[in-house]
Design a protein around this nucleic acid. Structure first.
Lengths: 237, 237
DNA sequence: GGTAAGGGTGTACGGTGTACACCAAGATTC
DNA sequence: GAATCTTGGTGTACACCGTACACCCTTACC
């Protein structure tokens, strides 16, 4: 019998590293996630991580892989439109659980296999719906990052971890933002619902989910219309 | 007469700092832009910059201000649709001259006055076109970052400065990307035009401008349709 | 039991943003 | 003209970052 493991600390492996990295990023945000911090969380010296990931870039890529796997697989029993819609809404839920993933996805230039799998199957849904290759091509571009369930927010919420820091930006910009009711930005004030008085959406403030689906459906309806009216690519010289 | 200025080096001021920062970011990219590098460019010690800029965050915000001012003002002599379209295309051209601005805009949580001005006047174009406040609200959300003329690219080009580094990512992902023609990603291969054989768009590879305007017009058409058919906000409980 | 391999450690280097004390020249005031 | 104040550039230093490299120590295997 080997000397009974005095400390129940299990050995590291790639999965444990990735798992811990995802959880840590969920907790403290992407900016605060450093190799040193992650190592500390795992009770290990920073350089130990490099036995399991090539470098931080590769770590981030692998973290994205982990969470993209959380997205529901496509449903094949319905029409393309609801299938795409449900899938993207699933992606949105995943990315809302892991807010840091947005920035990582946006900054990536190379895609990892799981990411490509996701795109591959999404494309397949349009093609299976009878879309031409050309139309599918443009449609994927039009979808853009909305494919991942996120969109640039007009007024981002300050990130949970960075709120203190955000509060100390130029008072000019700060007040302009919060006091958008001022005469300086009357349209923004109207839009942002500060002065709403009836029972409409604007009066409730902003329902992110509604906004997302509004835009998504607008695009999907547009795709459908183009498809049904037999859209053809413009001829190029 | 004061002792003739032996060195023609003019004093620093905020505008010179911002100007140099924008130019430097254009040249070397956002990741390579450091306070030290910028100071060096200005022939000055790093800490000198802090007499003109609060910190790097504020510098980035101010840089965005500079380039947002380059966007053409709205044209009032046409209908809302072409006015919005032209404006956004102008924004796109500006952001293509300053590619770093995309990442900065995406990461910002507070908006500076010039940014708010841009949003303010864009909103005003819809309202002037007769859009309801509610519809304008959703429309702005649907526009999202496309308001700035950019969209998440499906396959980002490697940045000019980072191409060497990008080449050394996991060979797995790398080959998956470049060899998307492989059997593993048949849909991606079709879409990305590797196997195109006729005279259509796909065969030409990807025309970024076309893709952008395709999506933009799809959205604008959708907005127009909603507006013309008298879209009303759904009632909430 | 010798040996090879895999995984955790310690140290060190060059980079980052920036706080703080200092100082030099120009403008202002008496 | 001298004393003062203000503005802006300097030098040093600190804490953090990613990570290269050499060194173990434990385990697995022949």
């Amino acid at each position: 019998m080997t000397p009974a493991p005095s400390i129940p600390r299990l050995r590291l492996n790639r999965d444990r590293v990735l798992q811990a990295a995802v959880e840590l990023a969920d907790e403290i945000g992407l900016e605060a996630l450093s190799m040193r911090r992650l190592a500390e969380e795992l009770g290990v010296v920073p350089m130990a991580l490099y036995k399991h990931v090539a470098n931080k870039e590769e770590l981030l890529d692998a973290m994205v892989e982990v969470i993209v796997k959380e997205i529901d697989p496509p449903i094949s029993s319905t029409d393309w439109k609801t299938a795409v819609r449900l899938r993207i809404i699933s992606a949105r839920q995943v990315l809302m659980r892991h807010p840091w993933a947005r920035a990582v996805l946006e900054s990536r230039t190379n895609h990892t296999p799981t990411v490509l799998d996701y795109m591959e199957s999404t494309i397949g849904m349009f093609l299976a719906g009878g879309f031409s290759v050309d139309l599918t091509h443009h449609v994927m571009h039009a979808l853009g990052s909305r494919m991942w369930g996120f969109t640039q927010e007009l007024f981002n919420q300050p990130t949970s971890s960075g709120s203190a820091a955000a509060a100390e930006t130029a008072p000019d910009a700060q007040s302009a933002q919060t006091l958008a009711t001022a005469e300086r930005y009357p349209n923004i004030a109207r839009i942002s619902g500060a002065a709403a008085h009836d029972g409409t959406v604007v009066a409730h403030g902003c329902d992110d989910r509604f906004e997302f689906e509004f835009a998504l459906d607008l695009l999907l309806d547009g795709f459908e219309r183009l498809h049904q009216t037999g859209w053809r690519p413009p001829l190029r010289s």
